[in-house]
Nucleic acid binder design. Structure first.
Length: 489
RNA sequence: GGCGCAUUCGUCUAGUGGCCUAGGACACAUCCCUCUCAAGGAUGAGAUCACGGGUUCGAAUCCCGUAUGCGCUACCA
């Protein structure tokens, strides 16, 4: 076991809680829990224009849903909330000033038009883009609209040892004098991130691979401030099915979408953990505790992973089947309330729901599926609709189907205890008597009673439906058959 | 264009010089179970380990090159 780490999740509130982003949060959290360290959430709301209202709430909701809790933060009325960089602007401004007085940063008066022209010219000349250091040695004072830029070393190289990728080196000459403090007084990511990681004594920075290229800037900033640099680990990116970065056009991308679609949090953390991390050559299903116990930086992979929805569905099925019935019922109820057709009587009878659910539990991959017509519609709807021809077994034909349905109906009517074992005994005896195969009678009864050809086992289904509804539906089937004018007889 | 990272079945991956004629999982196929479906069980198909050179008695594993993919290249994060 390694010594306790202090890690953070630092999202910017610019949109939905993206699964890739949440995976980063989860890896940080796992490392903290594995080492008995601390996990901090810091909202990096330094881009005023891109901040979207409600985004922070969505991110926090996603974390809570997955059981990712944080260990500290400013007091927020009893509860501690995450840190917000927008509330710490004075700190960043002071630190940027410090760099200026140290001669490691400078005011830049270049207008955005000039920068655009410069960039356009560089692209036209097929030269590397980057700030041309126009203001670097001018020793300009602050004026309205100025930014503060970092004075990059002009030569030499910067290396660091990434925990996942090993030694990575960049030539300083390829790095430009990036902005530290924007003209609106807000810091850029680079400044705020380094200042806060140091102030919050972050020991390990686990972030997405897209940050790898800017890490030398951060290393140099740490050095300029005289801060010790943390350990860096750049996580592989999660891709969509076409190998591009996972985005909305690949389907659900927000962790909350998965919640709404009826995926379990246990599934999501297990699945996300396996996107870029593996314990060995056989383990697939991990509980939260097992993940905490076994997680390690060494076993994170270097290659980006494609988000495989089929495997997610399979895994969610595994977790749904593991659920104790009361728990499955509690979780399914809201999906049934929302998903069943509007003509189904509300509120649902929980007693009845608990009888239906055991029959659907091993057949669904998501909780929302429990409310679909194919899975449970016939248990809840008053009327079922189906094509009359589905009742007729091809082998025995129209007339005989009608006959056996009528015989079965009469026998079932006599049955006192309408329960699965009794139903099975009665119907199995019946097929002996009339000399048809099990599948023939049961198949016809199945469509009569459910309107479907694929359902949970017939006897249990009839027991749950009850004698009244079962017989009424068989009667309806008989009359449908009576009115049926087969095209070929 | 420049810089960086990566490259094992369709997908997620195991593999850190000999246990690899490359293992597991999802998906797929066949069979078993069986009243249908699902679940479960069994079996199978599927990867010349991106390609080309080295190093070595021996390489998926080490080195070099090429190709391809991805990322960064903003007063975004």
């Amino acid at each position: 076991m390694i010594s306790p780490v202090r890690v953070r999740y630092a999202p910017s509130p610019t949109g939905l809680p993206h699964v890739g982003n949440i995976r980063t949060a989860f890896f940080n959290w796992l490392l903290a829990r594995h080492t008995c360290g601390q996990f901090i959430v810091r909202i990096e709301d330094t881009d005023v224009a891109r901040t979207v209202p409600g985004a922070t709430e969505g991110i926090l909701e996603g974390l809570k849903w997955l059981g990712i809790d944080w260990d500290e933060g400013p007091n927020n009325g009893g509860d501690f909330g995450p840190y917000f960089q927008s509330q710490r602007l004075d700190i960043y401004q002071k630190m940027a000033q410090q760099l200026i007085s140290q001669g490691q940063a400078y005011y830049c008066h270049c207008s955005s038009q000039r920068l655009e022209q410069m960039r356009a010219a560089q692209i036209a000349d097929k030269k590397p883009t980057g700030y041309d250091r126009h203001c670097r040695d001018a020793e300009l004072d602050y004026t309205k609209g100025a930014v503060i830029r970092f004075k990059m070393p002009l030569d030499g190289s910067t290396s660091f040892n990434d925990s996942i990728r090993g030694k990575v080196t960049f030539e300083n000459a390829n790095l430009d004098d990036f902005v530290l403090l924007k003209s609106d007084g807000y810091p850029t990511y680079h400044l705020a991130n380094i200042v806060d990681d140091n102030l919050m004594r972050i020991s390990h920075v686990l972030r997405a691979e897209e940050w790898l290229s800017s890490t030398p800037k951060h290393i140099l900033l740490y050095a300029a401030f005289g801060y010790p640099a943390p350990v860096f680990a750049h996580l592989p990116i999660i891709l969509g099915s076409d190998r591009s970065k996972l985005s909305k056009r690949h389907g659900a991308v927000s962790i909350l979408d998965y919640k709404e679609q009826g995926y379990l949090p246990e599934t999501m953390i297990n699945f996300l953990a396996l996107l870029g991390w593996a314990l060995d050559d056989k383990s697939e299903i991990f509980s939260r505790e097992e993940l905490i116990q076994n997680f390690s930086l060494e076993r994170i992979s270097q290659t980006s992973a494609i988000f495989n929805k089929e495997k997610l569905d399979w895994m969610n099925g595994v977790y749904i089947r593991k659920l104790p019935l009361p728990e499955f019922a509690r979780l399914s109820l809201p999906f049934l309330e929302n998903g069943l057709p509007s003509n189904v009587k509300r509120p649902l009878n929980t007693n009845y729901v608990e009888k239906v659910l055991p029959l659907v539990q091993e057949r669904v991959k998501t909780l929302s599926e429990t409310a679909t017509a194919e899975i449970s519609g016939f248990f809840f709807g008053e009327n079922i609709e189906y094509d009359t021809s589905l009742l007729i077994d091809k082998k025995i034909g129209y007339q005989k189907t009608l006959d056996i349905l009528q015989i079965a109906r009469a026998k079932l009517d006599e049955l006192e205890t309408f329960e699965a074992p009794a139903l099975e005994l009665l119907l199995r005896n019946l097929i002996e008597e009339i000399g048809v195969k099990a599948g023939q009678l049961f198949g016809t009864l199945r469509t009569a009673v459910t309107g479907l050809t694929a359902t949970p086992p017939l006897f249990q289904t009839m027991e749950v439906l009850g004698k009244n509804i079962s017989l009424r539906r068989i009667d309806e089937a008989i009359s449908k058959l009576g009115n049926y004018l087969p095209t070929e007889l």
